[in-house]
Simulated assay, not measured.
Amino acid sequence: MGNKFWCYTSSKSLLMLSDILFVMTITFVIYQDTQSVAYAAVFPLIRTICQLLAGLFSPVLTDYFQAGRLLKWVPLLRLGMLIVFTAQFHFFQQHMVWLFSALILISLTGGFISPLMQAIMPMLVPANQLVKANSTASIFHQMVQIAGYSFTGMLVLWIGPFYLMWITCVMIVLSYLLFIPVFPLLKQEETVRKTNKMNSFKDGWTIIWRNKTVRTLTFMDVCENIAGAVWIGAITLAFVSHDLKQGEEWWGFINAAYYTGAIIGGLLAAWMSQFIQKQLLLYMAAGSFIYAVLTIVYSLNSLPWLALVLCILMGPAYQIRDVSQQTILQTETPVDDLSKVYSAHYVLSSVSVGLSIFFVGLIADVYGARSVYLLGGLFVLVCSGIAILAFMKQKKESS
C-alpha cells in the first residue's frame, strides 16, 4: 500500500469527521433554538432523503461529467456552500426556512461524493491487497467515528457551534488537499457520453441484477441494514434501562464496547488479510453467522458485563464480514461501473434503514427492546443462510 492509499484514507477520514461535526452541530443548534425534538429530528430525515436522491442521480452525472471531474469540483462546491453558510450562520439560525433550504443543498452535494469515494479503493492497491487495504481503512474510519461522536457534544458546549462550523470547513479543505495526489489515477480515457440518460440511471441496478454474486451480496447487505436498525440509540437505551436494569451511563458503555470491538476487528482482519483474501466467501459467511448468533445471545442476556463482552465480540465478526463483502464487490465489479453499483447500494441502504427504523420502533413499543434484538439476530441468521446456499449453488453451477 503506497502513499496514495494513505492520502485517500486520511482524506476520507477527515471528510467523515467533518460530516459528524456538521450533523451534530446543526442538530444541537436546531434543538437549542426550538426546544423541539421533532424539529431536531427533521434535519437527519431531510439529510437522508437528499442522500437518497443524490444516489439515484449520481450515475447519470458520473457518465456525463466523469468521476474525476465530479470529485474535483463537487467538494469545492460543497465547501463554498459551507463557507457561505458559516459566514452567515447567525442569519440562518434565525430563519428556519432558509436554514433547511441550505441544509438540503449541502446534503445533496455530500450524497454525490460518497459513492464516488467508495469506488476508488481498487485503483489504489493491487487486487491481492484489497482485504488488507479495506480493513486498514476501516480501522481509521471507526476511530474517527468514536472520536467524533464522543467529543463533538463537549466541543459544541466549549467553543460554540459558530467556531465549530469553521473547524468543519478547515477539515474539508485539508481533506481536499490530501486527495490531490489521487487525482492522476482518475484521469482515464474519456468515455462516450450517453445520450439516453435512462441507461445511465439503470446501469448500477442492471449490474446488480445480472451478476449473481453482486446480487447475493446486495441481498445480504440490505438484510443486514434492516437488522442493523435495532442498534439505533433509542432501542439501545430502552434495552439498557428496562432489560439490563442500568443507568444511562451504560448506554455509552455499550456503544464504546461495540466501537472498541470494531477497531479490534479491523486489526484482526488486517492481520489475517492473506487468509481472508483466499476464502472471501467463507469468511463473509462465518462473520455474518457469528454476528447473528452473538446478537441472539445479547437479546436473551440480562447481565450488564456480559452485554459489554458480547458487543466487543460482535465488532470483529461484523468487520471481517464487512471487509470480505467489500472486497468481493470490488473484485466482481468493473472499476468503471463500481461507483454506479455503490450508488444503487446507497439508495437501497437509505430506503431499507429508513423503513426498518420506523418498524423497529413500533415493535419495541409493543413487545420491548429485547424482542427487537432477538428478531434482528434471527433475521440475519436466516438471510445469511439463504445467501450461503445461493453461493454454494452458484459455485456448483460454475464448476
Results as ranks from 00 to 15, higher is better:
59 P>A: 01
60 V>Y: 00
78 R>I: 01
66 Q>H: 14
63 D>N: 15
67 A>S: 12
63 D>S: 11
55 G>L: 01
82 L>C: 09
85 F>S: 02
55 G>D: 11
64 Y>K: 14
72 K>F: 14
72 K>I: 09
77 L>P: 06
57 F>I: 10
56 L>P: 11
59 P>I: 04
82 L>V: 11
73 W>F: 15
77 L>A: 13
52 L>F: 14
53 L>Y: 05
80 G>H: 10
81 M>F: 15
63 D>H: 11
78 R>E: 11
61 L>T: 00
52 L>P: 03
72 K>E: 15
65 F>K: 08
52 L>G: 10
76 L>W: 13
53 L>V: 13
64 Y>F: 14
68 G>R: 10
59 P>S: 05
86 T>S: 15
84 V>K: 03
66 Q>V: 14
54 A>T: 06
65 F>N: 02
79 L>C: 08
61 L>A: 09
57 F>D: 00
78 R>K: 12
68 G>P: 02
53 L>K: 05
70 L>V: 06
59 P>W: 04
65 F>P: 07
68 G>S: 13
71 L>G: 10
77 L>W: 00
73 W>N: 14
77 L>C: 14
53 L>I: 14
68 G>N: 03
54 A>L: 05
60 V>C: 04
73 W>S: 04
53 L>Q: 00
67 A>P: 07
72 K>Y: 14
64 Y>A: 13
76 L>E: 02
83 I>P: 05
67 A>H: 01
85 F>T: 02
68 G>D: 03
85 F>A: 01
86 T>E: 10
74 V>N: 04
76 L>R: 12
52 L>N: 08
56 L>E: 03
77 L>G: 14
78 R>H: 11
72 K>L: 15
75 P>R: 00
58 S>Q: 08
69 R>E: 10
82 L>T: 07
79 L>W: 09
84 V>H: 01
76 L>S: 07
53 L>G: 05
56 L>K: 00
77 L>S: 10
55 G>V: 01
86 T>N: 08
54 A>H: 02
69 R>K: 15
66 Q>S: 15
80 G>C: 10
85 F>H: 08
64 Y>P: 01
85 F>Y: 15
